[in-house]
Computed example of a mutant assay.
Amino acid sequence: MVSDAETRAVYRVLYDTRATPLTMGEIRERVSSLTGKSNLQLDRRLRSLRTFFLVPAVRDKDHRQRFVYALEGWKPDADHRTARKTIRASDRALTFHTYGNRCAACGRTPKDDHVKLVIDHKVPLELGGTNEPDNLQPLCEEDNHAKQALFADHEENAEALRVSLSLPDAHLRIGELLKSMAGVEVPKELIALVAREENHGDPTKRMRELRALGWKIKNSRRKEGRRSLSFYRLESWEPWPPGGPKAAIAKLEHARKHARRLEAQAKAAAEEGT
């Protein structure tokens, strides 16, 4: 399953430290000492191992801004999996060029902010994503770790995420995820990932649009360290409109604009009359 010595060294370090997981930097340091190499492409080798093994990124309980990597064992379907294909060098170069060599999440660059960028799958391979260029984006290691931790926190919802991500419209993707997790607080970041809109779209706007269709969605916020986190909880919903949510929302927006025009015309006429 693992053909190169560097990836085997990564596995060895993960196995030896499974009781006391390490950060990416600590893993890189140990693997370098084993292999004598510094240019390890560690993120790619970790993704290769994740084809067969559960290696979630989790927040360090003592340092909430750090992420550590714990080898938890084989994936349930590991014996049916085949090694993931390597992303083509041309596609990697194209991805960095398309995003201006910036992190797609925070906008930081290696030159100005001294961050390391890695190639991320917008839709993870485990949830139906591909290595095609339109599913690739550069993320700094910090945002990449945070995204991995977010999916790890919702491992039990993997099937719901897989189904939602396959739908053709952002409203459908968000709505079906909320329905599958009804009554549960869903992080704004998870909704943004499922929405699959450039620049993360605007989950707040999408919630307003779903509410306009009769959905009851409660918003809440709470502090976690220095961060203020937003959550949405679905309390009730309506069936999808026959023509789909996008058309129905466009019709409602058109009606609102028409009503505002009539109101403005009536106000202008009343002012002229006085």
Rank of each mutant, 00 (worst) to 15 (best):
82 T>Q: 14
144 N>S: 13
119 I>A: 06
69 Y>W: 08
45 R>P: 01
50 R>H: 00
62 D>G: 15
135 N>I: 12
43 D>G: 00
100 G>F: 07
60 D>F: 08
71 L>P: 01
133 P>A: 11
38 S>Y: 06
121 H>K: 06
48 S>Q: 07
79 D>S: 14
66 R>V: 06
80 H>C: 13
138 P>L: 11
69 Y>R: 05
73 G>T: 02
97 H>G: 06
124 P>E: 05
49 L>T: 01
70 A>S: 08
69 Y>L: 05
71 L>S: 01
138 P>H: 05
97 H>D: 15
93 A>K: 14
91 D>N: 14
92 R>Q: 13
76 P>D: 07
39 N>A: 12
142 E>K: 14
111 K>W: 06
106 C>K: 02
116 K>T: 13
114 H>C: 09
43 D>P: 00
73 G>M: 03
104 A>K: 04
123 V>L: 11
120 D>P: 03
116 K>F: 09
128 G>N: 10
89 A>Y: 12
123 V>Q: 10
83 A>T: 06
67 F>Q: 02
94 L>V: 08
81 R>S: 05
86 T>Y: 11
69 Y>V: 00
104 A>T: 02
59 R>T: 07
39 N>M: 07
88 R>D: 15
75 K>C: 01
43 D>K: 01
112 D>I: 04
86 T>A: 15
95 T>W: 04
116 K>L: 12
62 D>S: 14
61 K>S: 15
142 E>M: 13
115 V>P: 04
119 I>N: 04
130 T>D: 09
84 R>H: 07
73 G>L: 03
91 D>E: 12
41 Q>L: 09
60 D>A: 11
54 L>F: 00
133 P>C: 10
64 R>Q: 14
99 Y>N: 07
79 D>F: 12
94 L>M: 13
122 K>N: 12
66 R>C: 08
51 T>F: 01
69 Y>P: 03
48 S>A: 07
71 L>G: 01
40 L>F: 03
54 L>A: 00
54 L>Q: 01
75 K>V: 02
56 P>K: 01
67 F>V: 03
109 T>Q: 07
118 V>A: 09
105 A>F: 05
74 W>Y: 07
88 R>K: 15
81 R>V: 03
125 L>R: 10
54 L>D: 00
77 D>M: 05
90 S>P: 10
128 G>R: 10
46 L>F: 00
144 N>Y: 09
